[in-house]
Design a protein around this nucleic acid. Structure first.
Lengths: 153, 153, 153, 153
DNA sequence: TTTT
DNA sequence: TTTT
């Protein structure tokens, strides 16, 4: 590669995801995501701007979307831009730019009383008592079980 | 510039922020942030890994942190890495790497009954009814009030 | 803000930038950027995939583009997605998604013999009167001149 | 996952990479990377600031580093922060924060006359037997060979 | 310790 | 339409 094509979004779903299963039972999810940014214009006035994105997820991520995401869900999406083009029935050239996600983080707090119902995948850091000194322990490098701290550096 | 130094974190505060005011009434906030990532190792086993970061915020962001962040808060931080070094009293060279934030997004849903109490800055997209076609309208480019859609392209 | 809308690209310009000056002498540059990523598909075959993006730059960044970028230039662009819609003469609804850049890093080695000729600013907005401060989204630049190491932490 | 820990750097190697092979013939590369950013301080003065990062690469990426990177090389690194701690011989607690890279893009123009000599893979893991698939964090690579444009949306 |  |  001599290129980078990366998108990072945090926003809310405008509708429930639309999930389809292709042959081979491959899941594809699609939804609109609204990102709202606020900033001051040159005059110092607060401006709020919403942008809508089409997000596409494949396979495992699509299945996660189907299980856990719905209209209003707040998510972090990391992915890449992809523009498709086609001609409609009238022969007009059409373009659509989508964000193909390869990482998804659900940011909603479960507010439902019946938590535990659906075992939400993972749970980061919350409920930590103080930890920090403890947690600095030389953790293993993720996908490996190498003796990372024996490194001869 | 011929360089990029960018950090993006989503995680929970390990403690309430520590906020100080320097001369000139410049606010500086500091806190530990835990980011937890989950993934499968080579054997397919789910591994959860927590990393602790020191986050430093200046001025307006520090004041936001003081007002709205506390132990357990879930935040998005965008910033850059900065390593400081010094010698302690025994003459040992010490290093500390921090994330100096230049963007902060609070990701907690307000769960408190008395919402409205503290006017949380902005509120993105949530509660949107359907919108999408409407929202595609040719929005103005942020900090400008140029007739962006009159562009001669 | 309760949202994030961020794009990071590294790629080559497909053509020289198209630069226009709006009233008020505000520069706008537009160009196509090709990002090429390579990865292995499920069968282990190397796949190379090129995606084309429309990049829009304003003010100081547009002037930088005009001065230093040309067909083939390799650049890093950081920005945000923005979709515009309009109707063409036949009444067809059209959409275009662009990347509005707020940071630009030129990655080409100057190969010209007369290097040193023009002291490449190479940073968005540097040395420009219009002063695109957009790179930091209106945020306070973390103060280098602050006595950072005297921090009472 | 309920967290994000992401670093994006563009900078130059301060020295040739230090590459080691652990048992199992697993490669680990380590090097210092300088990122230089330029911006204006409050007085409008141009400030250039260099930050040094320790970058660690594993497996296929480490082998790429060994083959193609050297002192001065310009690279894009995407990875995550990881802080290790240990006690030195005097019993002093020590910390080191590193960037563990999971994506590498070489940004140097090949200036050597004998270009074409070694067909630069230039993508993390490409053409390597060890096959660092870390770049995609264990996620399914979005399937290029899927009939993406036949999607029923 | 890099680079412009 | 770029680049390797």
């Amino acid at each position: 590669m001599r290129g980078v094509n990366k998108v990072i979004l945090i926003g809310n779903l405008g509708r429930d995801p639309d999930v389809q299963f292709l042959e081979g039972n491959i899941a594809v999810a699609k939804f609109s995501l609204a990102t709202t940014e606020t900033f001051k214009d040159r005059a110092g006035k607060l401006i709020s701007q919403t942008e809508w994105h089409t997000v596409v997820l494949w396979r495992g991520l699509a299945e996660l979307a189907q299980k856990y995401l719905h209209k209003g869900s707040l998510v972090y999406i990391e992915g890449r831009l992809r523009t498709r083009s086609w001609e409609d029935k009238e022969g007009n050239k059409k373009f659509a730019t989508e964000v193909v996600g390869d990482n998804l983080v659900m940011l909603d707090k479960r507010l439902d009383g019946h938590s535990g119902d659906h075992p939400l995948p993972s749970q980061g850091g919350s409920g930590l008592s103080t930890g920090s000194s403890e947690s600095f322990g030389g953790l293993e490098i993720p996908p490996l079980s190498e003796p990372a701290d024996d490194l001869p550096f």
